Amino acid sequence: MTSHHGQDPESCEEYGYGLGAPDGILVLKYRSAGGLALGENRQDFLHQLYWSPDGPLATMHGPSVRFVGRGEGFWAARAVSHDVRAGDRQTVYRICLREVPPALDGLRAAAVSVGAEAARLIPSIARRGCDETTALAARRRILAGLAAPSAVPPPDVRGAGFALTVARALAHDPADPTRLDEWADRLRVSAKTLQRDFQREYGMPYTRWRTRLRLRAARVLLDSAPVTKVAHQVGYASASAFITAFAKEYGTTPGDYTTREAPARTSPTPVRL
């Protein structure tokens, strides 16, 4: 089953397979030129996974705002209220299930790992012409490719991957004020080694990478909160410092940016499988 709502640049497409059965799956594919605000969402009958291949998602469950980045999705079990937002020109897949993936049993709401095969298969079933047998086989492999949040590697890890460890932690909380030397102490390496690892992995120093992460996270939130609040949520001590950094990166102020990139909002209409 496939249906389409609206036309690009703002659209929502639905792809359903095996609906009515416990092992069915419904995939909603959202895309907007000006950001996506999926709204506060609660499903009493369905579990939901949100995943984007091309940008971070801001997730709200309870009082805090957390972000999920590359290689991750956001899992919300049935009857858990949550809010998910995405940035401009970003595709978001919302996967609705009646069955809990084995690795996520007992998990209410959290960032989860989305494996490489699952990331490849999700878009493959959210397209015209995908037959039900193929889609349901892919569904089993997608669920097998989901994993509970990974623990931070122990501080005695050696070799490559120091920057990746720090990046994963900061991707969840860009406002984390930990300095490069403090991260290095936690990982039991020198600050120089960690800086070199950031340069090798991301082609830029730690402070530059963190600034870009914070500003990209801010773009997801600007439509839903005042500039001052967003500045603090992504780690800036003042709105003026945030505005200066934002304008330097994007050539426009946060206020002008939100005026130009008006977000698409979707209503939390109940979905049934």
Rank of each mutant, 00 (worst) to 15 (best):
F45D: 03
E14F: 06
P254K: 01
Y30S: 07
I95N: 03
V114Y: 09
T266P: 00
L36Q: 13
R208E: 12
Y257N: 00
A163E: 12
R196S: 06
G235P: 06
K29R: 15
D176L: 14
R66Q: 14
H61I: 14
R186K: 10
D181K: 15
C96G: 05
L194A: 08
V271R: 12
A245K: 01
L28D: 00
Y93W: 07
W75S: 04
R42W: 05
A245S: 02
P9Q: 13
L57V: 11
A217N: 07
G129S: 11
T165K: 03
V84L: 10
R186I: 03
G87R: 01
P102E: 06
A110P: 03
R265M: 15
R216K: 02
R108P: 02
P63L: 05
W183S: 01
T207N: 05
Q233E: 13
R265N: 13
P101R: 07
L143D: 08
Q90I: 06
G69L: 01
G35I: 10
R127Y: 00
P268W: 00
I243H: 06
P263H: 12
S52V: 05
V234A: 09
V112E: 04
A86M: 04
A37C: 14
Q7F: 11
G39K: 08
A241V: 04
D197G: 01
P123R: 13
S224N: 06
T193W: 00
T59E: 11
S113I: 09
A175F: 01
W183H: 15
K29Y: 08
A37L: 15
W209C: 02
S150P: 09
E40I: 01
S124T: 15
V152A: 15
A21T: 08
W209G: 07
D88S: 14
F74C: 09
Q7N: 07
W75T: 02
P22M: 00
D131K: 08
L19A: 07
S3P: 01
V271W: 11
L164P: 00
R78V: 03
F162E: 07
P153Y: 07
H61V: 15
P270F: 10
A245V: 02
R272S: 15
V100P: 05
R98N: 10
N41D: 11
L38Y: 09
C96N: 12
A241P: 01
R108F: 09
A147Y: 04
E13R: 10
G106C: 11
G35W: 12
A151I: 11
F74P: 06
A103Q: 13
P153E: 05
V166P: 03
V227K: 05
R66Y: 08
L104R: 02
W183R: 01
L222V: 13
F67K: 00
I243Q: 13
G35N: 08
C12H: 10
M60N: 11
G16V: 10
A184R: 13
T269M: 01
K192N: 02
A160E: 15
A137L: 13
T253F: 13
G34W: 14
G115I: 01
D176P: 03
R140C: 03
E249T: 11
S32R: 02
G115L: 00
P263Y: 15
T253E: 14
P268S: 02
G34L: 11
K192W: 08
G145W: 14
R168F: 01
L104V: 09
C130Y: 03
V112Y: 06
G35T: 09
T211D: 09
T252C: 14
